[in-house]
């Protein structure tokens, strides 16, 4: 699998920045595939001594996919997308593993069933995803902060740049989101 042409992703990104909603539909799978590919190569033996930080992965995807001369808005948009896609990759993976563990025969997988039999780690990811959806209904910004901080691995500074809010706000919202999610997932 080869990475899509830089120009293609950049073009879509610019169109989306300019308000073209359809551009996003084309953009998401490209970013998803690239991140997935990178994640796999990070995890394989192809890269000895690699970092386990997702920020490195997202940054590499950015370097590979986007023309470096784009505006900061476009850059911010890219990281927003990448964070969402990292979240999806992780959740997809956890779901697949849960389903796989379920065993023989043809069967219908429900989230509950999947959670009942999976690794704690997989459960966490799936439950986090679900809790995060609830959080987004109350506070979309906090949900995005969680995506950027956790799934994309961005720092407080970077997150504040992407969302165009102060670092102090990011910090406090991040703290609150974590507390809220921890409570939500405990119950």
């Amino acid at each position: 699998m080869s990475a899509p042409a830089t120009s293609e992703v950049t073009r879509l990104l610019l169109r989306w920045t300019d308000g073209d909603k359809h551009a996003l539909d084309d953009l998401l799978p490209l970013v998803y595939d690239e991140l997935r590919r990178l994640a796999r190569s990070y995890l394989s033996k192809e890269r000895p001594g690699h970092t386990l930080q997702s920020t490195a992965l997202v940054n590499e995807a950015y370097m590979r996919l986007v023309d470096q001369n784009v505006s900061w808005q476009s850059r911010a948009h890219f990281f927003g997308i990448a964070a969402q896609m990292m979240r999806r990759i992780l959740v997809d993976h956890a779901r697949a593993r849960s389903a796989a563990k379920r065993g023989a025969g043809d069967f219908k997988v429900t989230l509950d069933e999947a959670m009942a039999i999976s690794d704690a780690r997989d459960v966490n990811v799936i439950a986090l995803d679900s809790a995060l959806n609830n959080l987004a209904k109350l506070d979309p910004q906090q949900s995005r902060i969680v995506e950027l901080r956790f799934f994309a691995g961005l720092s407080i500074e970077e997150t504040s740049q992407v969302l165009d809010v102060s670092p102090a706000t990011v910090k406090r919202d991040w703290a609150m989101a974590k507390a809220w999610l921890a409570r939500e997932m405990q119950g």
Binding site: Q53, S54, G153, L181
Partner: peptide, 10 residues
């Protein structure tokens, strides 16, 4: 919660 990097989880 969210202490480990997601990559590490994978």
């Amino acid at each position: 919660l969210m202490e480990d990097s997601p990559i590490k989880l994978l």
